[in-house]
Deep mutational scan, measured.
Amino acid sequence: LRQRHVACLARSERGLGFSIAGGKGSTPYRAGDAGIFVSRIAEGGAAHRAGTLQVGDRVLSINGVDVTEARHDHAVSLLTAASPTIALLLEREAGGP
């Protein structure tokens, strides 16, 4: 079961505080899956403080732009754009009992 949710992050002077992996033109985060995933969350960064991202979340869109088939460098450029806030649509595998 997959759950979707939106995370809104305000960029700090240190950026957004998370890294992505995967996407076309880069090493897959999961074998056989060209999706883009949250690969790291920086301690004390914007994403960590927001508490809405988890490592392993699939990134579906960035500020309304679909990145499900995107190249890695395109997703990075969307994240590093000048916008002071970033809205992410994420998909998470629902774990637990």
Rank of each mutant, 00 (worst) to 15 (best):
L1H: 09
R2E: 05
R2H: 06
R4S: 07
H5R: 12
H5T: 09
H5A: 06
V6M: 14
V6T: 10
A7F: 07
A7S: 09
A7G: 04
C8R: 14
C8M: 13
L9S: 01
A10V: 14
A10N: 13
S12P: 08
S12F: 06
S12W: 06
E13K: 11
R14Y: 10
G15M: 05
L16T: 05
G17E: 06
G17S: 08
I20G: 02
G22W: 00
G22S: 01
G22Q: 04
G22R: 01
G23N: 00
K24V: 10
K24S: 06
G25I: 02
S26L: 03
S26N: 12
S26R: 06
P28L: 06
P28W: 07
P28S: 08
P28F: 10
Y29T: 04
R30H: 10
A31N: 15
G32R: 07
G32C: 10
A34H: 14
A34D: 15
A34S: 15
A34Q: 13
I36C: 00
F37S: 02
V38P: 01
S39C: 10
S39D: 14
S39E: 11
R40N: 14
R40D: 15
I41F: 03
I41K: 04
A42V: 13
E43F: 09
E43L: 11
E43Q: 09
G44P: 06
G44F: 07
G45D: 08
A46I: 13
A47N: 06
R49W: 08
R49C: 13
R49Q: 14
A50G: 08
A50F: 06
A50N: 10
A50M: 08
T52M: 11
L53F: 09
Q54T: 07
V55C: 08
V55M: 05
G56N: 04
G56R: 01
G56T: 02
G56D: 05
G56L: 00
R58K: 15
R58G: 02
R58D: 04
V59Y: 03
V59I: 12
L60Q: 01
S61M: 14
S61R: 14
I62W: 00
I62Q: 02
N63S: 04
G64Q: 07
V65M: 08
V65R: 08
D66N: 09
V67G: 02
V67K: 01
T68S: 12
E69W: 06
R71W: 11
H72W: 07
H72Y: 13
D73G: 09
A75Y: 04
A75S: 02
V76D: 07
V76M: 11
V76Y: 10
S77Y: 11
S77T: 14
L78C: 05
L78W: 02
L78D: 00
L78Y: 06
L79D: 03
L79F: 05
T80L: 11
T80G: 14
A81T: 13
A82T: 10
A82D: 15
S83D: 14
P84C: 07
P84H: 13
T85K: 10
T85L: 07
I86C: 15
I86H: 06
I86D: 01
A87F: 13
A87W: 10
L89G: 13
L89D: 09
L90M: 05
L90R: 01
L90D: 04
R92I: 02
R92E: 03
A94M: 13
A94D: 14
G95N: 11
